[in-house]
């Protein structure tokens, strides 16, 4: 039983890490709560579903359509709405409310096109899964865990080793000094939204491979991702992955010992403990100014 709980914790943690890293990457330079990211995540699953069921495209192409849908939605929001708000020097509260509004409108649009009922893009028949030390894991879950690991490494390399990554970190560290150094902030935001939204799309598709989904799939995933970002520390990709793993494990142990209805409560209790005793998270730096 313990092996299964640990494995379930790893799987849950991996899904939180995927959405957490994609959200954290965007939050790093922009410093506002991009609520609509939840819909960008769901768009990956629904884009893939549309490509399979409406266009009859093969799965590999449908996945690309799903990732593309998320990327286009994320970029459209950044280029049309957020950029205009930045030009007007809008406060982070205005950004938060706008983003929340966008989330509601877009989630309802998904409901309008696809219906509110539960959908599935599972491949093949439901199988028992592979046995690892007495615990069961499905191929889709193996894909989630391995992709989460691969993307943690890839995003870390992007931020530390590439010119684009350095520009993202510079804007995150001191946006005005980045302007002064000749960094084009709009370009940095465009690229982080492109990568972050594509990653959210990948996360949405992977989760949809593993379980059924509905238009509200984004909100819970986003909340867990955000908790992972706060626990892990803003700016630290490894921290986010660790934070996600901690929540995943704690939730699964909670399900085992006290009951599944406490899953979300456990995550938020951990969040509270971190906010009170280690607000900078596992590996993050002390935040000079907190914005919503």
């Amino acid at each position: 039983m313990l092996a299964q709980v640990l494995l379930n914790g790893l799987i849950a943690g991996s899904t939180y890490a995927l959405i957490g890293i994609s959200f954290g990457l965007i939050y790093m330079p922009t410093r506002f709560f991009h609520f609509a990211h939840g819909v960008v995540y769901a768009a990956g699953a629904y884009g893939t579903l549309a490509a399979i069921s409406w266009l009859n495209l093969p799965l590999s192409i449908a996945v690309l359509v799903g990732v593309g849908t998320s990327t286009v939605i994320g970029l459209t929001i950044e280029c049309t709405v957020y950029r205009a708000l930045r030009r007007r020097s809008a406060s982070s509260l205005v950004f938060l409310l706008t983003s929340l509004g966008l989330y509601i409108v877009l989630q309802n649009s998904i409901s309008l096109f696809f219906g509110d009922y539960i959908q599935s893009i599972r491949i093949g028949a439901v199988e028992e899964g592979i046995d690892i030390l007495g615990a069961r894991i499905t191929p889709a879950q193996i894909l989630i865990v391995s992709m989460s690991l691969a993307l943690t490494v890839a995003v870390t390399i992007l931020l530390k080793r590439t010119k684009m990554g350095r520009a993202i970190r510079a804007v995150a560290n001191d946006a005005e000094l980045a302007d002064i150094s000749g960094i084009n902030r709009d370009k940095v935001f465009f690229r982080t939204f492109a990568i972050g939204s594509a990653l959210a799309g990948v996360a949405g598709i992977l989760v949809a491979f593993d379980s059924d989904f509905c238009p509200t799939m984004g909100i819970n995933a986003l909340m867990m991702g955000v908790v992972a970002v706060i626990i892990g520390g803003v700016g630290s990709i490894h921290g986010i992955a660790l934070g996600a793993l901690l929540i995943g494990m704690a939730q699964q142990f909670g399900v085992w010992k006290i009951g599944s209805q406490w899953q979300n409560a456990i995550a938020f209790v951990i969040l509270l403990i971190f906010l009170l005793f280690r607000p900078q998270g596992f590996l993050g730096k002390k935040v000079k100014k907190v914005t919503v």
């Binding site: 010119k163 350095r166 520009a167 510079a170 560290n173 001191d174 000094l177 980045a178 150094s181």
Partner: peptide, 18 residues
């Protein structure tokens, strides 16, 4: 003012970004 979360070399890399 420097990018205080980045190394000395990274600061100069940002300075010479273009």
């Amino acid at each position: 003012r420097v990018f205080d979360e980045m190394t000395v070399l990274e600061n100069l890399e940002i300075g010479g970004f273009h």
